[in-house]
Computed example of a mutant assay.
Amino acid sequence: MESRIACDSTSLGAAAGVIYCAGMRPVVAVDLGGTNIRAAYYPRGTPPAVRSSRRATGAGDGPTAVLERIHAAIEDLALSAPEAEAMIIGIGAPGPLDPATGVVHHAPNLPGWHEVPLGEMLSRRWGCPVKVENDANLAALGEWGHGSGRGAHHLILLTIGTGIGGGVIVDDRLVRGWRGLGGELGHLPLVADGPRCSCGQAGHLEAIASGTAIARAYRQVGGGPADGPAITTERIAAAARAGDPRAKAVFNDAADAIGRGLSGLVHVFNPERVLLGGGVVRAGEWFTGHVERALRESLMDATFGEGLQVLPAELGDEAALLGALTLVTSDA
Results as ranks from 00 to 15, higher is better:
Gly149Gln: 08
His153Phe: 09
Gly224Trp: 10
Thr162Cys: 03
Ser210Gln: 06
Glu206Met: 03
Ile164Ala: 07
Arg241Pro: 07
Gly182Ile: 08
Ile169Lys: 01
Gly163Lys: 06
Leu157Ala: 01
Thr159Asn: 00
His153Arg: 14
Gly161Met: 00
Leu174Phe: 07
Ser148Leu: 01
Ala152Asp: 13
Gly149Leu: 09
Val168His: 00
Ala209Arg: 02
Gly180Ser: 03
Arg150His: 03
Asp171Pro: 11
Ala209Thr: 02
Gln220Pro: 00
Leu157Ile: 03
Leu188Pro: 05
Leu188Gly: 08
Ala239Gly: 06
Arg219Phe: 08
Gly149Tyr: 07
His153Asp: 15
Gly186Pro: 02
Leu181Ile: 11
Val221Asn: 10
Thr212Tyr: 03
Arg173Pro: 01
Val168Cys: 05
Glu234Asn: 08
Gly183Arg: 02
Gly183Pro: 07
Ala226Thr: 09
Trp178Thr: 15
Ser148Asn: 03
Ser210Val: 01
Gly224Leu: 11
His146Leu: 15
Pro229Glu: 14
Leu190Gly: 01
Ala239Trp: 04
Leu157Met: 09
Leu158Pro: 05
Leu155Gly: 07
Ala207Trp: 01
Ile214Phe: 01
Gly177Tyr: 11
Ala215Glu: 00
Arg219Pro: 05
Leu157Arg: 00
Arg241Gln: 15
Leu205Lys: 04
Thr212His: 04
Arg216Thr: 11
His187Pro: 06
Ile231Glu: 09
Ala217Arg: 12
Pro225Ser: 14
Gly222Val: 11
Ile208Arg: 01
